[in-house]
Design a protein around this nucleic acid. Structure first.
Length: 430
RNA sequence: GGAGAGAUGGCCGAGUGGUCGAAGGCGCGCGCCUGCUAAGCGCGUAUACGGGUAACACCGUAUCGAGGGUUCGAAUCCCUCUCUCUCCGCCA
């Protein structure tokens, strides 16, 4: 069966090509991509019509043969042989046209949401708000790559020894602190924010990556096992969004809100040589991810609350943070609108992205074919999908260590985490 | 990993080469009838793409786990694969 892999609605592109071109220009997609797509669509439809009219004829004449007495069928059938050959050729032509169309279709990025500021690159991103005062010190705060080893919490050397560059080992209180953070976040989201926890596979089939938009364009950022054709998830967004792939969801169950803890694997080829210090950017890290499936009319409100759910973790941990809205030029391939949450890390002196909250509108739903019935009798419609980290672990760990460090090298444990560490109040150097 | 069984519509379940997108039942929807309820009766009840329409209607094609093959014609025959179940082995 020919796979329908629409990312944008081809009907919208057909009917309003200039509008689509203008919008995509804002996300740095050239208009020629749309012209190529429209041409491929035209070729595809012609091929389809040619094929279908021949098939209709064959069906009609074959049925006539079926009505004949058995002894006459063989002779009557022989006359249809050439028609069948024609159909085979038409099928091949249609499959080619379809494949060409699908290829182009999958490489067109999402349309930006009208609320997104227009800009060429990250310089035009907008700081939406700052929350909390950055921690101040009467001594020079240390970066986590000094604090961590001193606490016996991070072992960089052995991480490199066993797995190579961009790997580290959390040890003792470090491992325990990360586990506490994971439990804390999952509890907050499930208990107070209404998410249903899932624990998904970290290895998925190729089709899942297409659904979320990682493939075909970003294959070089994902690890895979060639022998079994498994792909290692770069984020829980992939398995969780694909939970409902190829499904028609009962409208009454929307919105669906999931939160998932998972390891994440990234090749980080694009960032070679950058952020090599510390645990900020590794090939493997842990993350708590929130994913929502909502009715289209609810997606704007759902994004606002998703963002607030992510920020709530920062608030409860007492981490100074800011919210950045991405401009059109800095939007990801799949996002229609996106806000990043960054926490302040006073030791390394930088804002760390701990969450990226996006609405994909119907972009992923089209690719993954996730629909819902608005009412029991209505035709299925695409859901809107959203997701955001809630939050990314190693960076929260960094922010906690650096924010709560004290002059003697110890680190206070934020109130909210103490129940998860048996009441422990201070981490002390070993 | 070894052996066997299976995969049909929302569900159950017929169908082994032709008029089958698929009997029958259940469920569901609409209507009728019945002074409640239950039963009964009639009609309807998948998805996608393309054409068509102001929008409906309507027309065509595809889909009986997936892919390929045989044939004028495949749910039905052949091959490959996937998944599920049972037994054995192995494990967390």
């Amino acid at each position: 069966m020919l796979k329908k892999a629409a990312m944008l609605d081809i009907r919208l592109i057909r009917e309003r090509p200039d509008f689509v071109k203008d919008e995509l220009a804002k996300v740095q997609c050239p208009p020629s991509a749309i012209d190529a797509l429209l041409e491929a669509d035209r070729v595809r439809r012609e091929a389809l019509q040619a094929l279908e009219s021949r098939r209709a004829e064959r069906t009609r004449r074959s049925k006539e043969i079926g009505a004949l007495p058995p002894e006459e069928r063989k002779a009557a059938g022989a006359a249809l042989k050439s028609l069948s050959d024609e159909i085979a050729a038409a099928e091949a032509a249609a499959a080619d046209a379809e494949a060409r169309f699908d290829t182009l279709m999958l490489e067109v990025p999402n349309l930006p949401h009208p609320d997104v500021p227009v800009g060429p690159d990250d310089s035009a991103n907008v700081v939406v708000r700052n929350v909390g005062e950055p921690a101040t010190f009467d001594f020079t705060p240390l970066p986590h790559w000094d604090i961590g080893p001193a606490l016996g919490a991070i072992d960089f050397e052995r991480g490199v020894k066993i797995s190579g560059t961009r790997f580290y080992v959390l040890t003792g209180i470090g491992a325990r602190l990360q586990r506490a953070l994971i439990s804390f976040m999952l509890d907050v989201h499930t208990r107070d924010h209404g998410y249903v926890e899932v624990y998904p596979p970290a290895m998925v089939k190729e089709q899942c990556l297409v659904g979320t938009g990682n493939l075909p364009k970003f294959a070089d950022t994902v690890y895979r096992d060639i022998e079994e054709d498994f792909w290692f998830v770069p984020t829980a967004e992939v398995p969780v969004t694909n939970l409902y792939r190829e499904e028609i969801i009962d409208g009454a169950t929307l919105p669906i809100r999931h939160v998932a803890y998972s390891p994440c694997f990234r090749r980080e080829k694009m960032s070679a040589g950058r952020d090599v210090r510390g645990i900020k950017r590794g090939h493997q890290f842990d993350k708590v991810e929130m994913v929502k499936f909502v009715r289209p009319e609810d997606s704007d409100a759902a994004l606002a609350s998703l963002l607030d759910d992510a920020e709530d973790i920062c608030r409860r941990l007492g981490l100074a943070h800011r919210v950045i809205q991405m401009c059109t030029g800095d939007l990801s391939f799949t996002a229609a609108i996106k806000f990043d949450v960054e926490v302040w890390a006073p030791g390394c002196g930088e804002w760390l992205e701990v969450s990226s909250c996006s609405s994909f509108r119907d972009f992923q739903a089209r690719r993954a074919n996730i629909r819902f019935r608005p009412t029991p009798q209505a035709k299925p419609e695409y859901v809107h999908t959203l997701n955001g980290s809630g939050l990314a672990l190693p960076r929260v760990l960094i922010a906690v260590l650096e924010t709560y460090q004290q002059a003697d090298g110890s680190v206070r444990v934020p109130e909210a985490l103490r129940p998860y560490l048996g009441g422990l109040e201070v981490l002390r150097p070993v």
